[in-house]
Design a protein around this nucleic acid. Structure first.
Lengths: 354, 354
DNA sequence: GTATTTTATGCAAACGTTTGCAATTTTCGG
DNA sequence: CCGAAAATTGCAAACGTTTGCATAAAATAC
């Protein structure tokens, strides 16, 4: 085991009786260096086991070739998929990605912004906390003209590049779908309104109701963090007494699944007695019985777009960042949980096939 | 928008008519600095919007306060959970975590080792590719005494710190469980043997068979990357002609789920006709019908242990790294897919309840 | 009030690169 | 073979910190 003696370009230079600048340029394929010396240098670099010191280069160039990525958590399907794509894509272009989790804590998000700035990341992509309404902790990046892209959970009144799903359309589509399948009393379990994407889905929900002349009832909408526990609590309220709703639009699949299981326990048949639609098309939605209708948000596409946006901004340093919003399409994936027509109460009780 | 003028400690020093060294020490709470100047300095730092430059500090100190994490992919439940935990834990101690994906490509893994070394990470944790048998691309870290910890997918003959699940016990437990539930002909879908954890599970499988005097048949074991497509191909072979097996031990849950769905299509009843057990306790295993028996590997615990190991090594720089293996326990989670006793062929055909 | 210890601050080098500019060597036209 | 242009290489400063050592200031002892 050799003592920790990192080889540097000066070692190469000494060995070869060249100047460090020549060695540096040779390693970076600078056109002014003859091919002969380039070869010599690279050979020696190999021989000595030289590895460039990214910090030294970064300090000199004032760039780290690292980009930051802040997401609520990487153990959830949707952000995990996006992160994967962004990471792979940027890696192809020689960038590292520092994936950080805010754990949906505003405090942590603020701290992350600070320390990510300290590492002098070249760009930042963020999907914010559920509770972030003030985005000023990202001002440092804007002010210093560091590429900044928000995705999915994006700010409302903060001028910055944005890549998001078409949440209004999503909310509208789901609700209309349920109405078309015969639902007349649709509950919506939404995330907290501090997060703009939920307000948009709610808007879609309301507009679909209005269009189909179904009265909107405040008591039929819930705003909460979309956890299993909260979903169960909502169920307790919803099914405390009749009339039960005949449709549920859950703003994520964890909630949809929880409600489905609750209904099973209550001997409510899905979809005959009540239809359920989720959101995000989590892999679980497909395999549960009955399979759950959901909305595909195409996380891979979103990831691609974010990566592309970042790369474009990185390619044109100094160019002022313009506000722009990019919409990633959504698609309703119809499955069993919202399939059959609603049985008129107590009449046709077809035996469920499989 | 201010021009990009990063404030540095020299700016603070000039403003305060102090030397840079004093400012540096003040910001780092060096004991030799009077509290009065410390306060003054910090105040001014705030006022100027100073943010430390991690690269400069890193260059000087020869440490980056960043640790590397190499996993096959972060979009899979098990590594995602581990990564989450490691990241959060290390972050508490002021470290950044550079999460990288090898995408199960040896080539990418090698490249990652190289570039991670270039960033001068302070430590490295890796769960290797399915196909990594030669680990010499990690020698740089060993040779330079940089903390190196492997987890889950660990090397066989490479002396290094290791945190892994008890895969032998897992294989044994699952197989014995199936036998106890009445299975006499158990197929095992294993990952490729290049990955040591699968060889151990296979060993467990074989030993359980032997102990219970069930002959091992080579034709009943499959070695393949555990994807859905491969699982389907295996199914085609397995169910090409009778006799069909009465038990399947799948080395991950994706495979178990695929087989379950295949059996449903073939009108084979699970668990009456055939029992299925998966591995890793993916969230999907719980919600599918019938729910699938699986093996919990406690990813959160594994993550904790890895983080702890890294931190310990980081705390004692220079100490020679010893080889050591830490076993994380496993637990069989019994569910419906392996529950009921095997129906003797064609006799009692109880209607499956729900 | 001086000598000595303790406390607080400053100087300057170092970390490993990159790069503008100057210097040197090579090439080539005439 | 000379001079000028082109190609190659070298010098030295800079990036923003940290830190060993020296120095200055304050506190303490006598």
């Amino acid at each position: 085991m050799s003592k920790r003696t990192e080889k540097t370009i000066v070692d190469i230079a000494e060995e070869l009786k060249l100047s460090v600048s020549t060695v540096s340029r040779a390693l970076n394929n600078h056109p002014n260096i003859s091919t002969r010396t380039k070869e010599k240098v690279k050979k020696m670099a190999n021989k000595l086991g030289y590895r460039p010191n990214a910090m030294a280069a970064g300090l000199r160039n004032n760039k780290s070739r690292t980009i930051g990525l802040v997401v609520p958590r990487i153990s959830m399907f949707f952000p995990a998929t996006i992160s994967t794509v962004i990471q792979n894509k940027l890696h192809e272009h020689g960038y590292h990605v520092l994936i950080c989790q805010s754990n949906d804590s505003l405090e942590q998000e603020i701290a992350l912004a600070e320390t990510l700035y300290s590492t002098r990341i070249d760009a930042l992509a963020v999907s914010s906390t559920l509770y972030t309404t003030d985005f000023s902790h990202f001002d440092i990046f804007k002010d210093n003209n560091i590429p900044l892209v928000f995705f999915d959970r994006v700010p409302k009144d903060y001028k910055v590049k944005v890549v998001k799903g078409d949440d209004y359309l999503g909310g509208y589509t789901v609700t209309e779908h349920l109405i078309e399948k015969g639902c007349k009393d649709i509950v919506h379990i939404s995330g907290p309104l501090t997060c703009s994407l939920y307000t948009e889905r709610v808007a879609g929900y309301k507009n679909a109701l209005r269009k189909h002349k179904i009265p909107f009832k405040k008591s039929r909408i819930f705003y909460q963090e979309l956890t299993k526990e909260n979903a169960l609590q909502a169920c307790e309220k919803i099914f405390a007494r009749p009339p039960y709703p005949d449709g549920v639009f859950a703003a994520n699949d964890t909630t949809a699944i929880t409600i489905l299981e609750y209904c099973r326990k209550k001997n409510l048949r899905v979809p005959e007695d009540i239809k359920i639609v989720g959101y995000s098309n989590d892999p679980r939605a497909e395999i549960i019985t009955p399979s759950i209708t959901s909305v595909d948000q195409f996380p891979a596409i979103m990831g691609e777009r974010v990566a592309k946006a970042l790369l474009e901004l990185l390619q044109q340093p100094g160019a002022p960042q313009r506000y722009s919003e990019e919409l990633v399409p959504i698609q309703l994936i119809e499955r069993a949980s919202s399939a059959a027509p609603v049985s008129t109460s107590k009449t046709t009780v077809k035996k469920k096939a499989k």
